[in-house]
Design a protein around this nucleic acid. Structure first.
Length: 699
DNA sequence: AGCTGATGTTTTTTT
DNA sequence: AACATCAGCT
């Protein structure tokens, strides 16, 4: 262990060795905080003889949890069952063990964003509320805010008079389903820890609690942490107020700013030496973040070399910008940079599209983190819904989802009928049985009968068959593959592939935890619901694309930040108040400090947004970087020699029109194009040849 | 019940 | 521009 400690600088060492009182480690970007945490854990196990399973470490994502576990084990040279998890999965764990103390069924289901919206839609409809004011999206985030303790439902009465009613009915519905949403997991976890029996038990059990990314914890999470370590002060929080980027999700920057007040006689250690970035990149980052007022104040320094200047590219439009990025990447690859060492960041997911298109065209392999999440894809959710239905008989949400998937000729009316039955308190299978009696049409009767038999059959097989086979059986017996073929002739194969991938995940879990049958599936469904973007990221030889949010906690030798325009980054919806702008700035700071060696910023003069072109100005954040650190670059001159091909890729290429519209003749299908004359076929007028200027090109 | 075209919404970030 | 939703029609 003594040998290990030699790897640390004095502050890091102090942080590892300090145990006298609550400890807050203010760890600047790239200051080796993961190293400190893992060494601290290793120290506890090896020197202080703590039982690893009684050390609780909370991370931000499951991926981070897994990595931390691996790193600790590498340090110790043996497997150490340290309890590492996210707040959410920790709460799932304790609720599955002690849930009944706060009236929670141990077999509760977790509703994801999509399910939540479905339930809310029903609620809003049932309350006969004006859907102009109560959009499911808006209501969903309002409810989140209420649950995260930002304000009460009643306090919103002036803007949303009926919010309390929605809130109550929504919770009632979830309750009936034994379902918890993401916020409930934390909230109920907190409630559970308020039960003195549980609190004593757990806080006695855990000898030490570490929390990573403390700047992004919310009020509820703070209280959970507090309850676990109450009075004992055996807590270490690690965070960086400059990297707090989730306030919109309830993260409370005060948690970190007032740690010393919240935890008695707390000690604060700052890690200000950066091991990641070049001097240039770090100076840029320091300079940008110094524009923020709400911070404790740190000044990072590094012994790393000066490094290359930060590059800045101005694109004519978003396509031009993407081409620049692709070309630069190509050049780097040619120079021997590994693709997995290159990352492209953007503020919003929608910006990824152009970049993807160009990378694909240029033959650059990339992987995209986040976006449409795997577990949120329709085909995956459908299959999961079947699984959920088999596991939890009360899962009405899933029943409704699959009632007519694959198509069985059971539509809205049947759904209403079924809902009535469920409201009478019947279980899903019972309700289906009743429904069979109620239906008039033979065809529908048969459809329900078939579904019912299928479900009963599958439920029998659930415990019997190995999980992978069971999933195949499920897909086959409900005719899901055929459904995919019919409904998605374009891409049914990749969709089917996704379903298979689901089987693989299940298999992995099976091998890891050795669970089986019902237990396995329950665990599987929780894992699935709580998986994060980063969790899906694999070590592949590919360039990585992701939002800045998703990049948190990662680092790359080469980083591109695209779309640096006013309205995009900072985002137009976050420029009203200075605290919003400060958060955008922190986000930019996170982006910049991911880069180890080379940072390239880019923006476009003109960008397509909502279908129309819009001129844009460069982001204010660019001008917050000292100009002597920035070098403006042009697209590679090498391409001057390939000029012939350049305009083709540069301009969105002029497509041959396929569908046109004429004032008098209406819509026409194009048959021939000669110069500015277009020959098209019109349904009621036959074939006509018309000058292009009289036609509107539809596609 | 299910399709069609019209209409309206979406783009902030996510456990 | 792409997508979801809905009324009205078959």
């Amino acid at each position: 262990m003594e040998k290990l400690l030699k790897d640390l600088n004095p502050q890091q060492k102090e942080a590892v060795l300090y145990f006298d009182s609550p400890l807050l480690i203010l760890a600047g970007a790239g200051s080796g905080k993961t190293r400190v945490i893992t060494y601290k854990i290793a120290y506890m196990v090896k020197v202080l003889n703590f039982r690893p399973e009684r050390i609780l470490a909370i991370t931000f994502t499951n991926k981070a949890a897994k990595e931390m576990k691996e790193r600790v084990e590498a340090l110790l040279g043996s497997s150490a069952p340290v309890f590492v998890s996210t707040f959410h999965s920790f709460c799932v764990r304790i609720l599955r063990s002690y849930g009944e103390e706060v009236g929670i069924d141990r077999n509760f289901i977790i509703v994801d964003t999509d399910d939540k919206k479905r339930v809310l839609k029903e609620v809003i409809k049932d309350l006969n509320l004006d859907s102009e004011l109560y959009f499911p999206n808006t209501v969903s985030s309002l409810i989140s805010n209420v649950k995260n303790g930002l304000y009460s439902a009643e306090s919103m009465i002036s803007h949303y008079p009926k919010l309390s009613e929605i809130y109550n009915l929504y919770n009632e519905r979830l309750n009936k389903l034994s379902a918890l949403d993401f916020d409930d997991l934390l909230l109920k976890g907190k409630e559970l820890l308020a039960v003195s029996k549980v609190k004593e038990r757990l806080s006695d059990y855990f000898q030490y609690v570490l929390i990573d990314e403390y700047q992004d914890t919310n009020k509820v999470q703070y209280e959970i942490a507090k309850a676990l370590t109450y009075e004992k002060g055996n807590i270490c929080a690690v965070g960086d107020e400059d990297q707090c980027i989730y306030t919109w999700r309830g993260a409370n920057i005060d948690n970190i700013l007032s740690f010393e007040k919240d935890f008695k006689s707390a000690k604060v250690i700052k890690l200000e030496k950066n091991y990641r970035c070049t001097k240039t990149i770090l100076e840029a980052a320091n300079s940008v973040i110094s524009n923020n007022r709400l911070r404790k104040g740190k000044e990072l320094y590094t012994d790393n070399p000066e490094g290359e200047m930060i590059r800045l590219y101005r694109g004519e439009n978003e396509v031009d910008e993407a081409i620049f990025i692709a070309q630069t990447i190509k050049l780097l690859l040619k120079k021997g940079v590994s693709p997995k060492d290159i990352a492209v960041f953007y503020r919003t997911n929608s910006l990824s599209r152009v970049i993807e298109d160009v990378l694909r065209k240029e033959g650059i392999a990339y992987q995209i983190v986040g976006g449409l999440k795997f577990y949120e894809r329709k085909e995956v959710k459908d299959v999961l819904a079947y699984l959920r239905l088999l596991i939890f008989d009360r899962d009405e949400i899933s029943l409704m989802r699959i009632l007519n998937v694959p198509k069985r000729g059971l539509g809205a009316k049947t759904q209403e009928l079924l809902k009535g039955l469920l409201d009478r308190g019947l279980g899903t299978l019972e309700a289906l049985r009743e429904l069979q009696e109620l239906l008039k049409q033979e065809k529908q009767k048969k459809a329900v009968k078939e579904l019912l038999e299928n479900l009963e059959f599958l439920r029998e097989k659930l415990e019997e068959l190995p999980s992978y086979d069971f999933l195949s059986l499920l897909v086959k017996s409900v005719g899901y593959e055929e459904f995919l073929r019919n409904e998605f002739p374009e891409d049914w194969e990749s969709r089917l592939e996704n379903v298979r991938e689901l089987g693989n995940t299940l298999q992995e879990l099976l091998e890891k935890d050795g669970l089986k049958g019902r237990e396995l599936y329950t665990e599987f469904l929780s894992t699935v619901a709580l998986s994060s973007d980063q969790d899906s990221m694999k070590e592949e030889e590919k360039v990585v694309l992701m939002t800045v949010h998703a990049s948190k906690g990662l680092e790359f030798p080469v980083v591109f930040v695209a779309g640096l325009e006013e309205g995009i980054f900072p985002h137009a919806r976050s420029t009203d108040t200075s605290s919003e702008v400060e958060e955008e700035r922190r986000l930019f700071y996170v982006a910049v400090t991911r880069a180890k060696r080379l940072l390239t910023l880019s923006y476009a003069r003109e960008r397509r947004l909502f279908g129309s072109r819009r001129l844009s100005r460069p982001s204010r954040f660019i001008s917050e970087i000292p100009s002597h650190l920035i070098k403006e670059v042009k697209k590679r001159t090498r391409l001057q020699s390939e000029k012939g091909t350049q305009p083709q890729t540069l301009e969105p290429k002029e497509k041959r029109p396929r569908l046109v519209y004429h004032q008098k003749f209406g819509k026409g299908v194009v048959k021939r194009v000669e110069g500015d004359k277009i020959t098209a076929f019109f349904a009621n007028y036959g074939q006509k040849t018309i000058l292009r200027k009289f036609l509107k090109i539809l596609s």
